[in-house]
Design a protein around this nucleic acid. Structure first.
Lengths: 127, 127
DNA sequence: GGTTGACCTGGAGTGCACTCCAGCTCCTAC
DNA sequence: GTAGGAGCTGGAGTGCACTCCAGGTCAACC
């Protein structure tokens, strides 16, 4: 199965411009071209794009994704290094989740605080 | 208790430049000045700065923090609107956590996958 | 064969959130 | 009284990750 750039964009959740941008900066390999010179993405290409969007969603900077892409390009010999990168990144994501959780607690507290204010306010009116 | 800009920076976790920047864009009220014209932050100022850093940590854009700051400035009458903002923001933070969690699952899967490759590789060498 | 629409290229522009700088003032310590 | 250090201002510069644009090609449909 092959996909036009518009289809690849739709399925990966990236924009067409972003797809071309990622190619330009070496984050994705240049895909095949059809007879008219247009990009023709394979299922493998799509899989990689989807994985990249996962990394991006978790806040991995582009230069790190590029490093990962370069290692991947060099084949099985770099599997250990890549695994190490994912391992460290996973720890960073877990830390980020913990950080967000603790901020959630602050939000909960603030929202409760506002509810008390409202309560007092209503009482003030009805009393 | 009052604090110099350096102390306020240290306690809020923001840089001195960021503190002045936040003041410039109306995110924090201009603090008092000492006899030499230097900023002198109060405990209240500090509390607000710390709260802002929480909002920033959770990814609230600056224009929204500014909107919140402006409502806050208008007093108790805007408490409902502010609560609503925090309420919606909390939902966004929760969604973000869920998104990160699901990406974590992908990372877990990938890391396990690499472990299997390593395992195979080692077996290949020793066999 | 002309128009339409998707796609192409290289390069410029955007928005966000800072971060840095030059040139200045003020207070303190020697 | 001067040297040093913290802080001041307005404005310019930075890094990131896109996003947009002009001007062109190509295949298909009417």
């Amino acid at each position: 199965m092959t996909y036009s750039i518009a289809q690849a964009a739709e399925r990966s959740g990236l924009s067409i411009d972003t797809l071309r941008y990622y190619e330009r900066i070496g984050l994705v390999d240049p895909p095949a071209r059809d007879s008219g010179g247009r990009r023709s993405y394979s299922d493998d290409d799509l899989g990689w794009l989807v994985f990249l969007t996962r990394l991006r969603t978790t806040g991995m900077p582009i230069r790190m994704m590029r490093e990962y892409a370069q290692l991947r390009h060099r084949g099985a010999a770099t599997a250990g290094r890549r695994k190490q990168m994912l391992f460290e990144h996973r720890a960073a994501v877990r830390a980020r989740i913990a950080e967000l959780q603790s901020c959630l607690d602050v939000l909960d507290y603030k929202i409760t605080h506002y509810e008390q204010i409202e309560h007092t306010f209503v009482e003030g009116i009805t009393a």
